[in-house]
Design a protein around this nucleic acid. Structure first.
Lengths: 352, 352
DNA sequence: CTGTTAGCGCATTCAT
DNA sequence: ATGAATGCGCTAACAG
C-alpha cells in the first residue's frame, strides 16, 4: 500500500495525501475526511524508510546500554521508551556488556541505521572511541549515568551521595566500614562512588578502610564472604550498586551473620525490587526512569531547536536515601541497645 | 556521505561500490580494496533507510513486550537482542504495560516502521486485535510466552510445570497450599498456571484450596498478608511469578513468619536475581533468554526461507526446578523434624 | 486549496 | 568485471 495507490483510489494527488498526514490543516476538511476514510479501508500506513530518506530524519533514537540484566538500565530504558514515545520517536537499543569494542560497533551501527540522535551509557566517557565516532558524525547525543565536563550528561552526584551515606553509617556508630564494588575499570560511576567512599571515610578520620573489588559475579559472593570471615570484619558495607548489595546480604547470610543485626549493608541505585526484599534494601536511590526520560527530552529538544547540546548544561538529578531494613546501629556501638535494634526493624532508625 | 560521493572519489560507478558491500565476490580484488580504503577514509556507511526502501526489507525486527520492569522480559529481550545481532537484525522494542489498546498501537507503529517481522508477548492471543492487524498486514511474527494453537509460539508448559510443583510440595507434606497470582485477565500464562495449580491440587485430593488474585502491586503485600493472618493459613504458597513470590516472602515476614520454617514459598519464572536472594528463591525456571533467542531464530529462518511460520511447529521449551531455600517440609508434617529443617537450609530437601 | 515534479541513497536490471 | 539508467515511497518546492 503506497501513497501513489492511495492517491489513485481517492482520486487526489500524492501531495494531497501527504498533506493529510503531515499538515492536516493545509487540506480542506472534505478531502481530508475522504482521504482518511479510504486510507482506513486500504490499511494505508506511511512508509517510514521512504519518509526518512526524503526528510533526512528518521524519528528514531539510538540507545546504547551496558546490559538489560541489571534492573537499573531496564528501568532507565523504560523511562527512555516512555519519553521517546511521547515525543514521537522510536528507539533502537543495543547492549554492549561493558565491552568497549561493542560500544564503538553499536555507535557505528546506529549511525548507519540513520538515527537522529543517541542516548548512551558508556564505560569511560574520557577515553571512549564510541564518542569520537559520534563527534565525527556530528550526531547529537546525551550520556546517561556518565559524568564528564566535555559531554552533555544526565546523572547524579555519585561522589556526594556516597559521602553522605558514609556519614549516616558513622552516625549510627559504624567505624569499620568497607566498600564493595564491581570492576572499577568498567565504569566511571564505580570510580566516582569509590572516591566518595574514601573521602567520606577520611572526613571522619577513618583512614584504615577496605575497598573490595569483585569483578566476576560468579565469585563475588565468595569474595565478600572471605572479607566477612575475618576477625576485625566490617560492621557495615557500602556497595557500589544494588545487585552487589543483594549478593552481600547473601554472603553475610552464608557467613552466619544476620542483616542488619550483625552487619549493615547499603546499596546504590534504588532499583524498585529493593523495596520488596526482606530485609528491604537500604540504598541511595537515583531516579532511573527520570534519568532516561530527561536524557531523551533534552536530546529531542535539541533536535527540534537545532541548538547543540552544551556539555555545561549537563544535569545532576537529585539522589535520595531509601530507608530500608538492611542498615542499623553498629553492633559494638553504645547506642546499639535492644530498643535501638527493634526500632530499626520498623525502619525508623535507618540512616536518615 | 553517500554512495554517489564515494563512487566519485574512488573513480568507479555507484554500482561497483554497491557490489563491494553486498557482493564482494562480484568485484575484482583490486577495486574492492581500493573502494574499501576510500570508504574507510571517508567514513562511509551505507544508509539503512535507502537500502530498506530499495530492497523492501529493513533488517529490523519489531518487539512488543508488556514491560521491562519485570526482569523476565528484560532477560527475554536480552536473548532477543543477542540473536538479532547475530543474524544481522536490529530491534525496535515497544512496551505495552499489559494494555490491549497499546498492543494494537505498537503493532501499527511497527508496521509503519517497516519491520521485517515481529516477536511479541501479548495478553491474550485468542482475542488479540494486535494479531489481527498483523495477519492483515501478512507480516511474519512469533509469539513468546504465549501459547495458542492458531499462532506460532515459543513458550513453556506452564500447566504441567505447576502441576509438578504442587506434587513436590505435597511430597514435602504440604496440604494447605494457596495460589497467588497477579491479574488473571492480564495474561494467558497466569491462567495456564492457575489451571495447573487447580489440577495439581485435585490430583492429590486437595479440593479446598485458595486462589488469591492480587492485581495491584501497591496492595499486593497487604492482600497476601491478610491471607497469612488467618488461623488455618496455608503452609505453602505457589506464586504465579517470581516478583509475586518475592512480595509474598515480604508479606510473610511482616506477618511474623519465617520462610521457609513457617511457610514455604515457590515462584515461577526463574529470574536470575532469585539465586542471589536470601532465602534463595525456589522456583520453576523458564529459559527466558532462550525463549527470546529461539523466537528470533525461528522468525529469521522463516524470513530467509520465505516459508510461513506454522502454528503447529510451535515450540515448548523445557522448564526446570531451581532448588532454592524458600521451600521445605510442612511445619505440621511428621517429617518436619529439626534435622529436616536444618537440611533444608542447605538446600538438599527442597522439592526435587 | 490542490497538482506536478524532482530527488533523497541505494540495489538492480541491462548493457558493455 | 564494470557502468548507465531506473525506481523503491515519500516530501517539499513550485505552479496554478
Amino acid at each position: 500500500m503506497s501513497i501513489k495507490q492511495l492517491a489513485a483510489r481517492a482520486d487526489v494527488s500524492m501531495a494531497t495525501v501527504s498533506r493529510v498526514f503531515n499538515f492536516p490543516d493545509k487540506v480542506s476538511a472534505d478531502t481530508r475526511q475522504h482521504v482518511l476514510r479510504i486510507a482506513q479501508e486500504l490499511g494505508y500506513l506511511p512508509n517510514a524508510s521512504a519518509r526518512s530518506l526524503r526528510t533526512q530524519c528518521s524519528k528514531v533514537l539510538g540507545i546504547v546500554l551496558p546490559t538489560l540484566l541489571n534492573p537499573v538500565f531496564a528501568e532507565c530504558l523504560d523511562g527512555i521508551a516512555q519519553a521517546a514515545r511521547a515525543a514521537g520517536y522510536a528507539i533502537l537499543p543495543i547492549t554492549t556488556d561493558y565491552e568497549l569494542e561493542r560500544e564503538e560497533q553499536a555507535v557505528l551501527q546506529l549511525i548507519a541505521a540513520d538515527v537522529d540522535g543517541m542516548v548512551l551509557v558508556v564505560s569511560q566517557p574520557a577515553t571512549s572511541r564510541a564518542l569520537d565516532r559520534l563527534r565525527a558524525a556530528s550526531l547529537p547525543y546525551v550520556l546517561a549515568y556518565n559524568r564528564h565536563a566535555d559531554h552533555p550528561c544526565v546523572s547524579v552526584d555519585n561522589e556526594t551521595a556516597v559521602i553522605e551515606m558514609v556519614a549516616r553509617l558513622v552516625a549510627l556508630g559504624h567505624r569499620r566500614i568497607a566498600f564493595i564494588s564491581g570492576e572499577l575499570a568498567a565504569s566511571d560511576r564505580a570510580l566516582q562512588r569509590q572516591r566518595g567512599f574514601c573521602e567520606g571515610m577520611q572526613a571522619h578520620g577513618l583512614d584504615t578502610y577496605v575497598c573490595l573489588e569483585v569483578p566476576f559475579i560468579e565469585t563475588a559472593i565468595q569474595d565478600i564472604g572471605a572479607l566477612l570471615d575475618t576477625p576485625g570484619r566490617p560492621t557495615a558495607l557500602v556497595c557500589s550498586n544494588d545487585l552487589i548489595a543483594i549478593r552481600s546480604i547473601r554472603a553475610a547470610h552464608l557467613a552466619g551473620l544476620t542483616v542488619p543485626r550483625d552487619i549493615s549493608i547499603a546499596g546504590f541505585d534504588g532499583i524498585a525490587l529493593g523495596r520488596d526484599l526482606t530485609p528491604a534494601l537500604s540504598t541511595i536511590t537515583q531516579p532511573n526512569q527520570a534519568i532516561g526520560r530527561d536524557s531523551v527530552q533534552w536530546l529531542v529538544a535539541a533536535l527540534a531547536s537545532g541548538q547543540p547540546l552544551a556539555p555545561h548544561a549537563s544535569r545532576l538529578l537529585p539522589h535520595a536515601f531509601r530507608t530500608g531494613e538492611s542498615c542499623t546501629t553498629a553492633p559494638d556501638s553504645p547506642s546499639s541497645s535492644r530498643r535501638a535494634r527493634v526500632a530499626s526493624l520498623t525502619s525508623t532508625l535507618d540512616p536518615s
